[in-house]
Every structure is written in C-alpha cells, then in structure tokens.
Design a protein around this nucleic acid. Structure first.
Lengths: 344, 344
DNA sequence: GCCTTTCTTGAAATCGTTTCCAGAACACTT
DNA sequence: AAGTGTTCTGGAAACGATTTCAAGAAAGGC
C-alpha cells in the first residue's frame, strides 16, 4: 500500500516550504500567484488531500456538528435530521447522529462524547425526563447548542440557547376551534409525553380554544399515551367505548392515530359519521387513509433548515445579528375526516 | 473561559511524565500500580478529558464510521441507520451520516469527504445509477466498507466487500406463490428502481414463482415506478383500470402501496373482494389499514445490526474469521387483504 | 556478589496541519 | 541613493495526544 501524500510531499515536489503550500491551498493570501499556481498544480498531480484530523487539531474546529435526538427512525425526526444535515453539509460540516431512545444515561453519555470529540456545535432534542441532566451537561461546555422544539428555559428563566419552536399551541387551537365550530362539544386530545413542550403546548391551545368559545371545559378530554405501545389501541378503545365518549379526536399522527383508527373500526364507529378525526402531523397514513384525515401540518424540512441556520450563524460568529429563536407556524389541512356530530 | 485541561497538566500535577500519564490512562500496562492510581485520581480531580482529535491523529484511527445512504428520512433506511448506530456506539464508534438523495455527485462528494476525514469504516447503500462511480471512489481507499442490500460484485465478478443482503427474491417468491395458490393468475408487481438489487431480486422471485407453478408468464405484470411522485397513483390507476387488470398486486410498502390503495378506492375496487394486496415491507400503513394488509416482513434492525457487526469484525482486524456476507430472510405475514379472485 | 533479565520511567519523536515570527525582497517616496 | 512600507517566504513552534527508545531500577539465578 502506497503511503498517503501529505503537505510535506507537495512542498518537496514544488520546491517550496510547508507554509507556502498551506497558504497557497487555503485562501491564497500572502502568496505570490506563481507559487500558488505551481502548488495547486503539484497538489492535484500528486493527488494530495488534506487531513481533516490534523487540520482540526490545529485550528481547534472539527468541522462536525452533532445531532442528539431521541430516535432517528421516527419519520418526524428523520426528516428534520435530513434537512439539517443537507444544509450543514453545504456549509462544509459533517453531521454525526446519536439516537438516545429517550434514555437519560445515553443522552448524557452522548453529550459527553460529543464534547470530547470537540464538535463545533450541537443540535439537540432531548427525550422525556432527561432535560435537566443533559442540559446541565451541555451548559458546562462552550459549544454552541440549538434546541429542537423543546423549552430552552434555564434555571434563571432566561432562554439559554437558541431554539426552533413549532407553534403547536396555535395548531391545536385551530383544530379545536374548527371542531367546536362543527358543533362538537366533547373532544379528546390524544398525545404523548405531557410534560414535554410539544404536548404541553398542544394541551394549552386545546384548552384555550374551549375557553374562547365558552364551551364547557369538561368536554375537553385528555388522553396521554406515555407508552405508545401497540399503537395505544387499548386506551383508545376504552376512551371511545366509554359512557360519554368524545365525538371528535385530535390524535398524534404517528402511531397513536393508527391505534385510534383501528380502535374506531373495531368499535364499528364510522369516520367521520360517528367520529371526527384530526391528525397532529401530516403523515403518509393521514394522507392516504380512507377517508383522508384532516391534519395539522408543519414543515419538518423548515425545522431542520431553521435549526441548521441558527447553528451556522453561531458557528460563523455572527452573534450580533444571530436570532435566538425561530417560530414555525402550523396549518390545518382540511380533508374528509371531520363532520358535524350527529345529534347527541 | 478557563483553558481545557490537557494531559500535560495532569502530568505536572501528578509529578510524572507525559508518557506515564498516557500509559496509566489507557491500558495501564507497563506502569506501576501506584503511579496508575495517582494519575487516575489526579485526572479525575482535574476533570481531564482526552482529546479525540489529537489521539486520532496519532493513532491514525478516527473512531468514526460513515453511513452513506440515499435518504435517512425514509423510515426503512432510518431504522437501519439507528440500529447500526446503536451497535457501533456500543463499540465506541461515532457515526456520521450523509443523505445523498440518490444524486451521484453528492454520493461521490460524500465518499470523498469521508476519506478525507479518515473515517475508519463506511456503511453504504448507493442510490440509483451511482453504483459505478461511488464504488470506484471507495475502492481507491483502504477503508473497510460494508454494503447494505446492494450488489457487491466488482468488475471481475468477485464480491469486493462484505454485504448485508435481504432475501427479496425468496420473499417475492413466497408472496407470489401464495397468491397463485389462492387462484390468482394475473398479478402485478409494483416496485421501483428495477436495476437495483432489491427490485431486481423481487422481480426474479416473482417470475420464478410463476414458472414453478406452471402459470402463464404473461400473467406476471410489472409496474416499475421510477419516480414515486404523488404516490404513483396515476400509473396504478391506469393499471387497475385497464382491460385485463390484475386481480392481485404486490406493492412496495412505502408510498407506492399508499398510491395503489388510493387508486383502488377511486376505482371502486374493494380489497380483498376485487383486488388482493400484498405489501412489500411491513410498514405502519400496512398494519393499520382497513383491511389490514398482508405483508412481506424482514427485520430492519437485523440489517443494521448485521451491517455493524460485519464492519466491526473488519475494524477489529478479525479478517480471518470475518464473514463476508449476511443473508436475512423475509417472512410473509398473513392478514386480511388477500382472497381468492372472483370468477373472472 | 555479579550478571542477566524484566519492568518502569521519562525524553524525544511523531502524526499532518496551521500560524507566528523574523528576515528578504521589492516597490515607492523623498 | 537612502529610508520606509508592504508583500513573500521559509523555519520553527504550536495543537494534544501516543509510542519508540534508551537508560535506570529492581529482581532473579548462579
């Protein structure tokens, strides 16, 4: 195997010093045009490729950003990750991912390792209960951090890091208002992880809509799925089979929606005649289901892009004009799954 | 900001040489127990954390592996990536991902950059037409490569790299045999990227089943979706609305299945009465659809794990006992979407 | 008690870059 | 022609670890 060609070889071959080669190759400032041309030509001929490790060591910048997310295989996260990755790659950064399965220990370990590897920045969406430990861990480093749809509030109440936030509150409010407008009075919100931002905001919006409309708040039923096992079918069966069952549901669009639809079918409830359904998140399932499910939609690509942009601003050092947060709006996509309730 | 603590600081504080610190911290061989204990204690007290970049530069091993995949946001890929990442992380490797959107140029660029970053190994599932260029690019390096469900055949006909292969042929054959057994004689296979391994193998298995059963091969209809735009709904409409329409379809379970189901609905075809459906891949959609769709299932986690394992064998240098490929079987999960065709 | 072997130890080299520094070359002004 | 900047250039010092090497110390065998 032939040894890899280093900057030293190029210098020798071109008959100049190491420093000149380095200067010629990056920037080209403080170097005469003739030498620059020669060096570049020789480097190409020899097939020289700079060693990022060595460069990183010297420049104290690894050219990599980390992405800490509960589970990349969740399509919602995956799309965000891909979008962010694409934008960061454009800017010359490599992205390393770590799925943590919502396990605080693994989150800590990953954050720890990210710092050891001197990553230039971190995108993070901590899972369930880990918020405190992982954020403390991150805070101890000087690495720029951007939060994905989580609360960036520190102990002192100040936003500690920039964040990309989705307006789940506004979305839930719009959906609820829509259902109330159709005449529904008992509506259930099926969501997960009540103490995390997305669900918390949704719940808030849900209740606000009831309050605004002057509807009986007892009609706003919550169904929290802490473990989205077997598509949450069991809980939904109980909910829909109960005495004062809701005439409409707003369900998280990944697995919970699937479980809810199946439960409805098992109970012989027809959508939208007996039950109106709104999906939180416009998934394939929602779009393709029969009938097609009305959905709250926000752009996952935007989330990824915005996060990457926020991080890049920090990395470029544009602290002055760097925004500290991005708020993404949520749309209600009307389809066929909602109707006025039958006289109850 | 306080400067980061290096091995030099530890040496000074412990009153020993740099080499002793290094020895004490890794392995602990060739160092007296007393010094080892002292050094470890001092290192912990000072909060020393080794710099991976510096270490990598010296040891010529970055501790990172790359993953080159067409699109991480595809749930199938995402699951594989997550599984591989988990296993590699256990072994101390970090994983960097690059989605290439099937763009040969981006694939090349990514492979290029991976090499520049001195990644220790690469997991790769090239998209469409890029096979040649990207493999040539990879072949020029000495980095261990593991192929994900693609043909690892080189110009000379020899398998160049280890690969994790899914038995799509066997799966398609089983599904086709099942449908033929139900009495279907006109079956359509809806798949994508006919020249890539997964679809090619499927097509082969599909035809083999027809041949084995002595059925008229003209009944084996192919519908190749090169662009899975709008869920391939248009093509499927034409197929199902045509003169000698198939009585059963086997459809790729991501978006094509969705388009097919919608097309069937639009044409007023009831599943399974008028049309039997088998999904290739057990997606949420297949499991939750009404009626539930019979599906070909293989474990994406296994693919990821197997790929990681194959790569780790190479990285550990167990070339001697390293396997060169893993073949994963495909099961047919029977549900409610298939029935005997009505007398035609 | 001396020689040989093994084990510890620290100094120094190395990995491949970038960057600081000082001197050289050159152009320009007076 | 001398003085004063400005731009190029190469040597050498980082960056922070690991690893080689040789010397010193301890242990063991006769």
């Amino acid at each position: 195997m032939t040894r890899v060609v280093t900057i030293r070889d190029v210098a020798k071959a071109a008959g100049v010093s190491l420093s000149s080669v380095s200067r010629a190759l990056n920037g080209g400032k403080h170097v005469s045009p003739r030498i620059a041309r020669d060096v570049i030509e020789v480097a190409k001929r020899l097939g020289y490729r700079p060693d990022f490790l060595a460069r990183s060591l010297r420049t104290r910048s690894s050219g990599m950003v980390g992405c800490l997310v509960s589970d990349v295989s969740n399509p919602l996260n995956a799309t965000i990750v891909r979008a962010a990755e694409a934008k960061l790659r454009e800017a010359g950064y490599l992205m390393v991912v770590a799925s943590t399965a919502n396990d605080p220990n693994r989150e800590r370990a990953a954050a720890d390792e990210f710092r050891g590897r001197r990553l230039d920045g971190i995108l993070v969406a901590p899972g369930s209960g880990a918020n405190e430990t992982i954020w403390r861990e991150l805070a101890s480093g000087a690495t720029p951090v951007v939060i994905l749809d989580r609360d960036p509030i520190g102990d002192d109440g100040d936003p500690r890091w920039p964040a990309v936030l989705v307006d789940h509150r506004g979305g839930a409010k719009a959906a609820t208002r829509y259902l109330l407008g159709l005449g529904h009075r008992r509506i259930a919100l099926l969501t997960a992880d009540a103490h995390m931002r997305p669900s918390r905001e949704r719940i808030a919006g849900f209740r606000e809509a009831f309050a605004e409309a002057g509807a009986d708040p007892a009609g706003a039923q919550l169904c929290i799925q802490s473990t989205p096992m077997d598509f949450a079918q069991g809980d939904t069966l109980a909910l829909l089979g109960g005495e004062r069952r809701p005439t409409a549901i707003i369900a998280l669009g990944t697995r919970i929606l699937a479980g809810a639809l199946r439960a409805a079918r098992d109970l012989g409830l027809s959508v939208p005649r007996d039950l109106s359904v709104v999906s939180v998140g416009d998934t394939d399932l929602a779009a393709i289901h029969t009938p097609a499910i009305t959905a709250l939609r926000w752009s996952l690509e935007h989330v990824g892009h915005a996060a990457a942009e926020l991080l890049l601003q920090r990395l470029r050092g544009d602290i002055a004009q760097a925004q500290s947060r991005a708020l993404l709006e949520v749309d209600l996509v009307l389809r066929e799954s909602c109707a006025a309730p039958r006289c109850s």
